[in-house]
Amino acid sequence: MSRTTSTSIEGAAMKTLAYFLLFLVLAFCVILLAVVLGDRGAWYFAWLIGTPLIVLVSAAGAAWLDTHEASASAHGKVHKTH
């Protein structure tokens, strides 16, 4: 194994470690926020959870429409508006 590859592997490992630590810190921040909000600000907490939920449901709805149309056109039933 040459020096350069070993340093690049080390570099990759360091990068993974850095990401791991970053996300670990983020996870702790989220837990802290959730604990504080859950205790003192139930409605704030509901907003924080509810908003991503609303966004994701509406995004999933769009993706569902895509799938629906893709399967319809695959079966040769091109929708009349096309």
């Binding site: 509810g50 939920l53 609303i54 966004v55 449901v57 509406s58 995004a59 709805g61 769009a62 429409l65 895509d66 508006t81 096309h82």
Partner: peptide
């Protein structure tokens, strides 16, 4: 703009029904 409108409507309707309940 049927493709854009249908998708936008679908997203807005789901977004809207949940938001109105909230």
């Amino acid at each position: 703009h049927m493709d854009l409108a249908k998708r936008s409507f679908r997203m807005a309707a789901l977004f809207g029904v949940m938001a109105t309940i909230g």
